[in-house]
């Protein structure tokens, strides 16, 4: 910090002397931007570095394909297969619910929405964006589990995750649909194409790259959610492939559980699971970028 401050001041002093005050200020602005950039990068890189160095030593084929079944949390060995499976299933179900609903809501808001109803929907989407994940979890717990009497399951967790995901999908899809030039809609309508077909065949294909990216980023966002999973999915050491019945585990929950145990072996496992989680999110991000580039409407020659 001090070194950075010193560096900026020194640049200013020297440049002002050598090149005059306008260049001096220019140099300072440039240095400040660079210093801020590096400061922002430091926590990011060190986080990645710590996770990778600590996580990599436990990750192997065994770790990825075995559960904690039959082991005490204090034992060595074991793996994250049950948690990985749980995460994939819960996030998958949440996406299957949230993506279509979010997409259709956004289509309604951008293409049809006028007047009171649209304003109300927009308002509720805004409110939903701010819902803390634990509240979404409690809501599902109160309705699905306590009122309707279902036990903990991956599906209950997925419902809470879907609540968290939906507003993100609506928002990003809305932005992408608004980017589609009105001229394209008019060109299609002027050919005598009904509005719903215009949306389906012209508007959505034009925006599909951005929409998919938005959904992927929303998926990445909910993959790390711990609180609702803790409440609703409950956690287990065993492999439970059925998301509709019985407790499951999930990666963030696993990280938490293992860290709480506090032995060397369990903390190593926590880092290993954390690394898998980060890698998963990273891959989703890259895939999203790839899709955005691949599907971007080609312009120019």
């Amino acid at each position: 910090m001090l070194a950075a401050l010193f560096f900026v001041l020194a640049t200013f002093a020297i440049t002002t002397k050598v090149e005059g005050s306008r260049q001096g200020k220019d140099r300072v602005a440039t240095s400040v931007v660079w210093v801020c950039f590096i400061l922002a990068l430091v926590p990011l890189l060190s986080l990645a570095w710590v996770t990778i160095t600590k996580g990599i030593k436990v990750i192997d084929g065994y770790f990825l394909t075995h559960s904690m079944s039959g082991l005490l949390d204090t034992d060595e060995g074991g793996g994250i297969y049950h948690a990985l499976l749980g995460t994939l299933e819960q996030v998958g179900i949440a996406t299957l619910i949230a993506a279509p609903v979010g997409l259709l809501t956004a289509v309604y808001l951008v293409e049809y929405g006028r007047g009171r109803l649209a304003k109300t929907v927009t308002f509720f989407v805004d409110v939903m964006t701010g819902i803390p994940s634990i509240v979404a979890g409690l809501f599902i717990l109160a309705t699905w589990n306590l009122m309707l009497g279902f036990g903990p399951s991956g599906f209950a967790g997925a419902l809470a995750l879907a609540i968290l995901m939906m507003p993100v999908v609506v928002r990003s899809t809305e932005e992408m649909l608004k980017l589609v030039p009105n001229e394209l809609r008019e060109a299609s309508l002027a050919l005598g194409v009904p509005k719903w077909r215009t949306i389906l065949k012209v508007v959505l294909p034009t925006a599909i790259g951005g929409i998919t990216t938005g959904v992927m980023l929303a998926v990445a966002r909910i993959t790390g959610e711990t609180a609702p999973v803790l409440l609703l999915v409950f956690g287990t050491k065993l492999i439970n492939p059925n998301p509709f019945e019985g407790a499951q585990s999930s990666l963030p929950l696993y990280v938490y559980e293992q860290y709480v145990v506090g032995t060397e072996a369990s903390i190593d496992r926590a880092w290993g699971a954390a690394l898998v989680l980060i890698a998963f999110v990273m891959i989703l991000n890259l895939v999203a970028r790839g899709i955005a580039r691949w599907k971007a409407p080609s312009t120019g020659r």
Partner: peptide
């Protein structure tokens, strides 16, 4: 149906980009 009978060309060329 009217728009199928009466076609339109716009000010800026607007081919479908996809």
């Amino acid at each position: 149906a009217v728009r199928r009978t009466v076609g339109m060309v716009f000010q800026r060329p607007n081919p479908f980009p996809t």
